[in-house]
């Protein structure tokens, strides 16, 4: 697992209070991990802070799963 993937998963575990085993690449934040719209916003903000990037709202809308988040950050993190 890449460094980015493990950091992303750690944030999700912390913010959503879920078990690490649940945080599979295909897991949807809202459908599988119990996030509501505010949780999702918070996750995006935490990713921005952790990886020192800015995720525009129109891009954030497309990040719905753990895998989406890892892929986006791997592509955009400096």
């Amino acid at each position: 697992m890449s460094d980015i993937a493990s950091r992303v998963k750690a944030i999700i575990v912390d913010k959503l209070g879920v078990d690490e085993t649940e945080v599979a690449p295909e897991a949807s934040f809202t459908n599988d991990l119990g996030a509501d719209s505010l949780d999702t916003v918070e996750l995006i903000m935490e990713f921005e802070k952790e990886f020192n990037i800015a995720i525009p709202d129109d891009q954030a809308e497309n990040i719905g799963t753990v895998g989406d988040a890892i892929a986006y950050i791997e592509e955009n993190a400096k």
Partner: peptide, 9 residues
């Protein structure tokens, strides 16, 4: 501005 979405609620 990096306010938490939970700040207000």
């Amino acid at each position: 501005p990096r306010f938490s979405p939970f700040f207000i609620p």
